[in-house]
Every structure is written in C-alpha cells, then in structure tokens.
Design a protein around this nucleic acid. Structure first.
Lengths: 185, 185
DNA sequence: GTCTATATTACGATAGAC
DNA sequence: GTCTATCGTAATATAGAC
C-alpha cells in the first residue's frame, strides 16, 4: 500500500501539482483509506517528499544513462534532447517549480534544486568534452549552452501545453538542434 | 474597486496560480469585501478571465513594441531576449500552463494559447526577415528557431526558480544568444 | 455597490476500534 | 495496517439588508 500511495501521489503531483492535490484524491487513486495513508505517512508533505524524491531520482538516472552512454559527446547530447517525451504532460520535476508551497518548503524544494543543478552541470561537462575533442567549435560557452538546452526542454513543455500540441515541443527541440548544428564538427 | 480586484487577482495568479488562489485571498489583497467581489464578477473564473486577459495583452504589447522597434532584425531579437525580467517570479502567462483548471477551461485557456502562438509567429517573422536581409545564415529554420528561443525564456524561468537564482535565467539567455551568434552576419 | 449572515462542500488531520 | 468517526478550518458561493 505504501508503494501505491507513492505512485499515486507522483501521478497527481505531475497532473495537478502540490496545491492541486488533496489527500482525498490520493486515497481514491491509490485505493488506500484515510487511516492507511496516515499510518504510512505523517501527512501530505511527508508523502509528497517521498514522491518527489523518487521522480527526481528517476529523471536523473535516465539522463545519466543517456549522457554517459555510447557515442560521441554530441551524439549523446542529441540523443538526450531527442528522446521521446510526453510533451503535454510536461516534466514531473520541472512542474514543481511553479508550486509555491513546494518552493517554500526546503525539504520539498531540495530534490528539485539538486536535479536541475546536476543536469546542467552534467550536460556542460559533455559539451566541454565535445569541445576538447574538436567536435564542438570553441565559440559557445559550455555552461551557458547547457543551461540554454535544458531550458529549451522545460520551455518546450510550456509551449506545447499552451498550444495543446506536442508537435510544438518537437519544434523547440528541432530549433535548438538547428542552432547547435552550426557549431558542430 | 473592480480595478483593484483585477490587479490583485493578476498578482495572486502570478504568485500562486489559479488553484492556489482563493476568493478570500483576492478580497484581502484588494481590500474588497465578499459582496463587492461578487457584485463585479460572477465568481472566481470570471475574475480570473479578466486578469488573465489583461496579463496576456500586456505581454503581447510589450513584445510587439520590442520586435517592431528600431534596429536590424537580429538587434531587435537580441533586445527582446535580453530585456530585464523578474526571473524568479517567472512569466505570468506561461505559468498558467501548469494550472490544470485553467487548461481545462476553454475560456481561460484561450488567452494563453493565443499569446504564445502569436509570439512564436512574430519572432519567426523577424527571423525570416533577418535571413532575407542576409543578417542570418540560411541554416536555421525560422519557425523552429523562434519556438526554441521562446522556450529558452520560459524554461529559463523554470531553472532560475529551481536554483532560486535569477542568474541562471541570464545564463540560459546567454547560452541561446551564443548559439545564435554562430549563424549571424 | 458594499456589508453581514448563512450554506455546502472540501481540506487536512486525529482518535480509537478492529 | 486498515476502517470509521469526528474535528476545525478554508473554499466558494448565495441572500438579503443597507
């Protein structure tokens, strides 16, 4: 039951955010009763922490696998950026950034902060590797470029949701790859 | 009073989103009483529509002024991207994209959708102008590039909030300008 | 136009039985 | 571990007086 509670909370946080997710909704989706939920967790913030932590770990593990995978640095970055994503659902971690109650709670906030600071640094390292290997021109700064690329993904979700069209997300990624291409080889 | 109600709602939607904003909070911030609010507006959705519409119009007017201002196309785009923004507060329109109740209501959703579809098209037009005038290389597709650039801004807010550091937003913009620079002139 | 009173439902949690 | 009962507060209005 503990497991279902966490998974249901992850889904609801993704769909509706922290403020928009009630204990009751979690109980209904997970099939757990009132008492069960408060037996396993101290309350909504405690349960949310478990859910957020897991989503953050999952996101990071996936990115790490792609960015440390086989292929040249630029190929790995392209693979990471081009990975199929559910654009209209958005990013389960990035979304929390808009949740005032999450950002106001240092415990809930930490996994979000760490995930993105890690991701930006990791991507910057791969870009630096590409530059060192002569695959990337010397022009673009790795750290700034990494932040811009991660921003394209996060902003791509925003624009896709605004348009109610996943294709807009794909277009944002294409645009970023097109800009990057001018600096490659 | 009608005016204060709209302005207070705009602020609260920006800070806390639609789900996180209660009629009571609006009344307290605006100084209006219960009866006053329900005299001027039919309810929370009606008031939110007025607030969202105004924020959307403001955002569009500001962008239009910059993108249609003086200077070469690339200079205007650079000016638009580099404009000082309150990175930690984020975008008052883009933020609504994460609000399930806003996206579920066609009336509330429309201003959000229109603002971004207009912005992407307008930016694409300026990029096409740059290309036609020989200021921008033929490589990058104007529409995809425009979407990517708008995404950098929207995603830059996400990353800045995640890091609780406005500088991260500036870095995302720098990264985008750096990538764009390789295709200019 | 604004105020106060009232109503209904949901939120977020605790207590104690089983 | 789970269930039911209960609690106090907040959300989102409506009604009617002034």
């Amino acid at each position: 039951m503990r497991e279902q509670l966490i998974e249901s909370t992850r889904e609801l946080l993704w769909e509706r955010g922290y403020v928009g997710t009630s204990p009751k909704a979690i109980q209904q989706r997970s099939g757990a009763g009132q008492g069960s939920m408060y037996h396993h967790f101290r309350g909504k913030p405690d349960l949310a922490l478990a859910a957020i932590t897991r989503s953050a770990e999952e996101m990071r593990a996936r990115a790490e696998a792609e960015l440390s995978g086989p292929g040249s640095p630029i190929r790995r970055i392209t693979a990471y950026l081009s990975r199929e994503r559910d654009a209209l659902r958005g990013c389960p971690v990035g979304r929390l950034t808009q949740d005032p109650d999450v950002m106001a709670d240092p415990e809930l906030r930490r996994p979000v902060e760490e995930t993105f600071s890690w991701l930006r640094a990791r991507l910057a390292a791969v870009l630096a590797e590409a530059r060192a290997g002569g695959e990337l021109a010397a022009g673009p700064d790795p750290a700034a470029t990494a932040t811009a690329l991660v921003a394209v993904l996060q902003g791509g979700y925003v624009l896709a949701r605004a348009a109610a069209d996943a294709e807009v997300y794909a277009q944002a990624v294409d645009g970023a790859l097109g800009l990057l291409a001018g600096h490659v080889r």
